[in-house]
């Protein structure tokens, strides 16, 4: 399939151009039977060098765009590749089934696990169906119900985060979106089974944290995790939403920042050029990280697991304590 001209970010353009050239030569090779594999190899080497160069100099805002990339693999793309088997379970038993928050029982190389995560939509119709990946109270309550189910049968929980924010419509306020998130934070902090979270794309504020109180929090290399979207923050603090680029830098939202600040435990590398250039490899990397951490956590006794989870979040944040009067 030739690389599409659509959905190419500005800084990806030179790469996309080379991709198009390579595809063109391949097509000609097929049509005319000329052997131009040398040209292809040379071009591919050029492209890879370019990828390396561009991606080692990414600005924070470029990473935001990558995390929101329309071609970026979404939660179900990972689910499909990572799990041997997946059976979706639905509903919060209170109000409705939320399509932005999905979950179910899955097998990860022979390990029985519970999976929950936000799902974004690919095309217009699908996006509406998934509410742009913004879960409502019933979504958080469904996630909690499934996590409680996992706790009952001592199965580890895998949370895959990819959401711009929690839904803030009138209906969500009416049904207590704050309460739903707060309850998840509280219940997850004492859930008696291992919990592992991976921020796949956008880790949007409370909407992300609502399923991210975990023993291990991991991030994909080009994912972002932020207390507020940079453009909203610029609008509120600087009264100028067009300063989103500067704000993205100031907010320190990349995976390397989060690791430095002690908010996440590890970064999962992405294929050159980002997860969307090689979904299989990206999913394999996530899978390997999940297996590693699940097996590590499985060795811990529940009391130790919970103590460490508490200590982990207890230790986050900075302050100074002066002793003088």
């Amino acid at each position: 399939m030739p690389p599409s001209e659509w959905n190419v970010l500005d800084f990806e353009k030179p790469i996309a151009d080379l991709d198009t050239q390579i595809a063109e030569i391949r097509r000609l090779t097929m049509e005319r039977g000329e052997d131009r594999s040398d040209d292809i190899i040379a071009l591919e080497q050029d492209r890879d060098r370019l990828l390396q160069e561009i991606f080692s100099n990414l600005k924070t805002w470029d990473r935001v765009l990558l995390a929101r990339h329309p071609k970026r693999p979404y939660t179900l793309d990972y689910v499909r590749i990572m799990f041997d088997d997946y059976t979706e379970l639905s509903g919060d038993r209170l109000f409705a089934d939320d399509h932005a928050m999905i979950g179910g029982i899955a097998t990860l190389e022979g390990r029985q696990v519970m999976f929950v995560g936000q799902q974004k939509g690919r095309d217009l119709k699908d996006r509406q169906y998934r509410n742009f990946g913004s879960a409502k109270p019933e979504g958080y309550r469904k996630a909690l119900r499934l996590m409680k189910l996992a706790e009952k049968f001592k199965r580890p929980v895998i949370c895959l985060v990819d959401t711009p924010a929690a839904d803030c419509s009138v209906g969500s306020e009416e049904r207590g979106i704050s309460e739903a998130i707060a309850r998840n934070l509280m219940e997850m902090s004492t859930l008696e089974t291992p919990v592992i979270c991976v921020v796949l794309g956008e880790g949007g504020s409370g909407g992300a944290l609502g399923i991210a109180v975990a023993d291990r929090v991991l991030m994909l290399e080009h994912a972002v995790y932020s207390v507020i979207p940079p453009e909203s923050c610029a609008a509120i603090l600087w009264r100028d939403p067009t300063k989103q680029k500067e704000m993205a830098e100031a907010l320190k939202i990349t995976s390397t920042d989060a690791l430095k600040l002690g908010v996440i435990d590890d970064i999962i590398p992405e294929p050159p050029g980002g997860a969307h250039r090689n979904v299989d490899l990206a999913a394999r990397n996530v899978k390997n990280a999940l297996i590693k951490h699940i097996d590590e956590l499985a060795k811990l006794k529940t009391t130790k697991l919970l103590d460490e989870r508490y200590k982990k979040f207890r230790g986050m944040g900075v302050y100074q304590e002066s002793t003088e009067e």
Partner: peptide
């Protein structure tokens, strides 16, 4: 907002204490 992602984590931290 000025403390970035660390301020988000205060939500988890305070609520975990409430759980206890």
């Amino acid at each position: 907002m000025q403390e970035g992602i660390l301020s988000l984590m205060q939500m988890a931290k305070t609520t975990a204490a409430c759980a206890r």
